[in-house]
Write a protein that binds this DNA or RNA. Sequence first.
DNA 1: TCCCCTGGTAAACAAATGTTGACTTAAAAA
DNA 2: TTTTTAAGTCAACATTTGTTTACCAGGGGA
Lengths: 193, 193
Amino acid sequence: MAATTPRRRDATKTRQLLLEAALQRFTRDGYAATTVRDIADDAGVNVALISRYFKSKEGLFEACLTSSVDEIRRTTGDTPLSRTPEAIARQIAGPCTEGLPHHLVLLLRSSGDEAADRIRLDLLRSYGQRLAVAAGWPEDDETMLLRAQIVLAAATGIALLRTKSGLEPLASATAEDLVAPLRDLVDALMSKP
Amino acid sequence: MAATTPRRRDATKTRQLLLEAALQRFTRDGYAATTVRDIADDAGVNVALISRYFKSKEGLFEACLTSSVDEIRRTTGDTPLSRTPEAIARQIAGPCTEGLPHHLVLLLRSSGDEAADRIRLDLLRSYGQRLAVAAGWPEDDETMLLRAQIVLAAATGIALLRTKSGLEPLASATAEDLVAPLRDLVDALMSKP
DNA sequence: TCCCCTGGTAAACAAATGTTGACTTAAAAA
DNA sequence: TTTTTAAGTCAACATTTGTTTACCAGGGGA
């Protein structure tokens, strides 16, 4: 049989289960409102394993954050400006079939930990720069950087408002519904020359 | 002497102190991360008075929310679309001299309480409708309602990103810096015909 | 078969948190 | 002055929460 023998005792697997459960909880409820027992129960795993595999609750949160950041980096790698609205819309509305929550929202969750804050800030900064560059501006143009960051803020704001409050029609808008307004938004902010 | 005798023991005053301290904490750190002892210390008041004046921590949060909603309703009462960008910019950047945090951010804080959720949702919905109407659209136009809510989401997203992460240049942008991009944003989303 | 290493469990811990009730004291009313 | 009412304080409470420690058990290698 292949190397993927279905072992009942699999540290890697349980680690993954914990990570996914934590990602869901932290994104939906925030850091402080989430308890380690909640996460462990969701994962169907003993609480003590969190401390073992991730050192602490904060360690688990940090792992979630880097995982989410990696995911964002992977799915949004060098998108041209023309495709940015769709990319954002898909990011916000989710891959439709996926039950996982929006990675953007996790970026707004805070544990008070400094390491986590730096991870978050690094992604936001580089994301903003990438957006400005994709729009054809020099990356040290402060005005355009501000505009790019506003696009970013708008995206996260939409994602947050969607999940937190059942504000209709925004809450249940599909990616198709969102792409047209987002195109207008991105165009107006970024391609102004 | 007038009715405003400066009493040392003033229930109304202490209530107010608690409300302001709570507003600050809840907005900055969120509901779960804020303890009643933090609030009481900030206000220079005994902890037990929170339960006395507001019934519970959740009661205090609800009071904060309605207070903030009232403030938003007062300062943004029937603004024409042409002035909306400035109004938003000022709301986001704060009245400059004021130490109070952004009321918009509190709208994204959640205590899990249902009553609070309804208050929040009501404001967001009416705010969105008002925006659509101010732009000259019928208030039952779903497409424009969605666009108005995206404007709202963008505003809250900016406010949140400003306070949570020190993302520059967004974090320390002034109201003047923000008004031009916001004008482009609002124009692109709302006045499309 | 026996041993041992590692994944998993359970109970307990100290610290923190929201809330309550009895007590004290300032200041207005008599 | 005395009385009374309300504002404020103090200490304790029952839970909850993150973390640790000691213990159990399955399964691969000898």
